[in-house]
Simulated assay, not measured.
Amino acid sequence: MRFAVWVPLFDELADPLTVARLAAAAEDAGWDGMFVWDQLGWRAPVTAVADPWIVPAAVAASTERLRIGPMVTPVARRRPVKLLCEATTLDRLSGGRLKLGVGLGSDRFAGEFSRSGEEVDDRVRAGQLDESLEILKAGWTGEPVCHHGKHYTVDSVRFLPRPVAGRIPIWVAGFPGNARPLRRTVRHDGFFPVNLTSPNQLDDVVATVQSLRGSLTGYDITVAVSPSTDVRPYATAGATWCLTDFDPATLRPADVRAVIDAGPAR
């Protein structure tokens, strides 16, 4: 199992230099990754929010080994060709260390879709997500992309340069009891089941993914747990990455630094 620090870019952590310094400390302490939330806003008492692409760029420039990326980005609120270029640029800046977490997002946590004029229908956003992922994967081949879908059009556009490894790993987030995210995720590189309640629930997730894929070789199962959680049952259940989760309402840089300095729970 690999271990990452996963932070919301809120309030004091909306300072990219602060997060970059924390990432450098995490690398020194033996962590494997630094991932960030992708939100436009959050509930009170949170007031300030940083950009989830600029901050990982600062992290990439401050580290040499850590895996980085947004976890997760609600793809439907981004133009797919813009996302393609941003992801490729960040991947190349980091030397191929980007993991791209994607999902539908939700309006229920902070009302950020309805309050900013974005699509709130989950079914529509799901269609936008699937089309966008097709465009990303086609664009990373270096060949001209011809896509004429319900939501997006890309008319014979070639996207260069390519990512360092030729493509970027895509982790799909979703609630573990929903069939559609599971069917979507097996077409990509990993699954991030959100709001897991127990390792037993992860057992069911892993069994379902394996039955759909036929094999879990080279495939990641990511879990998010609080810093005090015993991660061994999750590893036994099949998790390959563990993200250390924090409460955004009370989070301070000193709290993150204390977890980082304690090192990953290997």
Results as ranks from 00 to 15, higher is better:
Leu182Trp: 01
Phe3Gly: 11
Arg97Trp: 10
Asp122Ser: 13
Gly190Phe: 07
Arg167Leu: 00
Glu12Val: 03
Gly69Cys: 06
His148Lys: 07
Gly103His: 10
Gly177Cys: 01
Arg2Cys: 02
Thr197Cys: 07
Pro163Cys: 05
Arg125Asn: 01
Arg21Leu: 00
Gly142Ser: 03
Ala4Met: 08
Arg232Thr: 14
Arg97Glu: 12
Pro161Thr: 05
Arg266Phe: 05
Ala44Gln: 09
Arg183Lys: 14
Ser94Cys: 08
Asn195Arg: 13
His151Ala: 01
Ala265Phe: 04
Val231Lys: 11
Ala48Tyr: 01
Leu182Asp: 00
Ser114Gly: 15
Leu212Phe: 01
Ala26Thr: 11
Met71Glu: 01
Ser156Trp: 09
Asp245Cys: 04
Ala179Ile: 08
His148Gly: 10
Lys82Phe: 02
Ser114Lys: 10
Asp230Gly: 11
Gln128Val: 02
Ala165Val: 05
Arg158Pro: 01
Val102Glu: 10
Gly103Pro: 04
Thr236His: 13
Val231Asp: 15
Val157Gly: 13
Asp189Met: 08
Gly218Phe: 04
Cys146Thr: 15
Gly33Met: 12
Arg162Asn: 02
Ala262Cys: 02
Thr73Gly: 05
Ser228Gly: 06
Val124Glu: 07
Thr153Asn: 06
Arg92Asn: 06
Ala76Met: 06
Ala4Pro: 13
Phe191Tyr: 15
Asp220Leu: 04
Trp6Cys: 04
Ser116Asp: 02
Pro264Cys: 13
Glu27Phe: 05
Ala25Ser: 13
Ser228Val: 07
Arg167Met: 03
Asp255Thr: 14
Leu104Arg: 02
Asp32Tyr: 06
Gly174Asn: 06
Ala44Ile: 03
Glu118Cys: 03
Pro74Tyr: 12
Pro8Phe: 00
Phe246Gly: 03
Ala58Trp: 15
Val194Pro: 07
His151Asn: 09
Arg213Glu: 08
Tyr219Gly: 13
